[in-house]
């Protein structure tokens, strides 16, 4: 379907993650929530791929499935040259140091019964054979790298602010020198001034350690700031993937257009001139997606074919992928 570029660190092909729904007296399977339904993309080494979309479109599930925190329904995932789509969890353990994750809620992602030192140390305990003093030194180095005072090592997570907790989470993700980090809305739970700090920290670390990010967010301006390329998701599918500048300057897919027009414009003179695309209706349920194109129920540019046939996800211009029937003739 798609040829993966030679320098891709992560390549995902036709990833599907369906959660079964059980109901009734005998808890029989009556359907499934298609949280991620056939997603394909590559992440090139050293880049940041932004993954945007509205709430519930499957962004986080996609990120977690790529790290195989779930047992995926179907598809191939290749990270650093190894196919991990169907391998068992015990075998995956050796792969874990390569791929790490930064979580959305810094409050919930840190064990309240462990000190900061113990939290950052956990990956070292699991995967390295360093001595106690070496581990301690490494923990201090990581705390320096993310800008936490070494004196805080013996404190518990609840003694920290949201931004500091997120730094603890980032330090833990960095402990094993990973190549690929999935940032699952790392800034969503933080206030604006702290958001900038954390994003800048992520950028600095990327430069310093040569990291590759999958940056999941619903904050379009933050994604514009950090991402090299951006993928837009709608109802479990990627509708458009393009380099950042091209996507923000000239969105191709009607959903991307609507999404970008919702970004507030700070200049009042421009804001009044700006044309907003306001979508009607709600997102259909991922348990019962519409026939044809997933977006056909709300699309301003809907055609007859959209309601019967699913659009193919393909490259319409070099480096720009779109799944829409409007580009069939190209």
């Amino acid at each position: 379907m798609l040829d993966s570029p030679s320098n891709a660190l992560v390549s995902v092909r036709n990833l599907k993650m369906h959660f079964p729904i059980f109901a009734g007296l005998f808890r029989r399977k009556v359907g499934e929530v298609k949280a991620v339904d056939g997603v394909s993309f590559d992440i090139i080494e050293g880049e940041t791929l932004g993954l945007v979309g509205e709430s519930g479109c499957g962004k986080s599930t996609c990120g977690r499935s790529i790290l195989r925190l779930y047992d995926i329904t179907d598809g191939q995932i290749e990270i650093d040259g190894r196919d991990i789509g169907q391998t068992s969890q015990s075998y995956l353990r050796e792969m874990r140091p390569t791929m790490q994750m930064v979580f959305q809620d810094p409050q919930a992602s840190l064990n309240p019964r462990m000190t900061v030192e113990a939290i950052i140390r956990e990956p070292l305990d699991e995967h390295t054979k360093l001595s106690d003093t070496e581990k301690k030194e490494k923990v201090y180095e990581l705390m320096d790298a993310v800008g936490l005072n070494r004196r805080f090592a013996k404190r518990y997570p609840q003694a920290f602010s949201g931004g500091q907790r997120q730094r603890i989470g980032i330090a833990r993700a960095l402990a094993l020198n990973p190549k690929f980090i999935v940032c699952d809305e790392p800034i969503a739970a933080l206030d604006v001034s702290i958001q900038a700090q954390v994003v800048n920290l992520l950028e600095d670390l990327q430069e310093q350690f040569g990291l590759t990010y999958l940056f999941i967010s619903h904050d379009l301006s933050m994604v514009r700031h950090i991402a090299t390329r951006v993928a837009v998701m709608y109802l479990g599918k990627i509708v458009e993937l393009a380099p950042r500048e091209a996507l923000y300057a000239d969105p191709l897919h009607p959903y991307t257009k609507a999404l970008l027009s919702a970004v507030p414009e700070p200049d009042p003179a421009l804001a009044t001139k700006k044309e907003r695309v306001i979508l009607q209706g709600d997102v259909p349920s991922p348990a019962n997606p519409p026939k044809g194109c997933n977006f056909c129920t709300r699309c301003p540019a809907v055609m007859g074919i959209c309601k019967t046939q699913e659009p193919e996800y393909r490259e319409v211009e070099p480096g720009r992928f779109v799944a829409c029937h409007n580009f069939n003739d190209q």
């Binding site: 015990s90 995956l92 353990r93 994750m101 992602s109 064990n111």
Partner: peptide, 12 residues
């Protein structure tokens, strides 16, 4: 989430 985080580290 911290249990998920531990799983992403590969804690058995």
């Amino acid at each position: 989430e911290f249990v998920l985080a531990a799983r992403s580290i590969g804690t058995p």
